[in-house]
């Protein structure tokens, strides 16, 4: 189970006024995936983390950090 990594997805999403569904469509994953990552229940793989970083135009470490 996830939980060992913190993330700023919710804040970043809110700054852009994106819903979880908006972000899910950009990432080509389900809304459930975004919800699970955002709540720290699931830690994304490195390729998905890179994709998230690319979408927000940030580095991975600007979004994810050690708990």
């Amino acid at each position: 189970m996830g939980g060992s990594v913190k993330n700023r997805l919710k804040v970043l999403r809110a700054e852009r006024d994106w819903s979880q569904q908006d972000l899910a469509q950009r990432l080509e994953v389900s809304r459930q995936s975004v919800n699970a990552i955002e709540k720290g229940r699931y830690d994304p793989s490195l390729p998905l983390a890179f994709k998230i970083a690319d979408i927000f135009g940030l580095a991975i470490e600007d979004i994810f950090s050690r708990d």
Partner: peptide, 8 residues
């Protein structure tokens, strides 16, 4: 399944 979370 391409969605890694759903696949998991």
């Amino acid at each position: 399944e391409k969605d890694e979370f759903i696949r998991m």
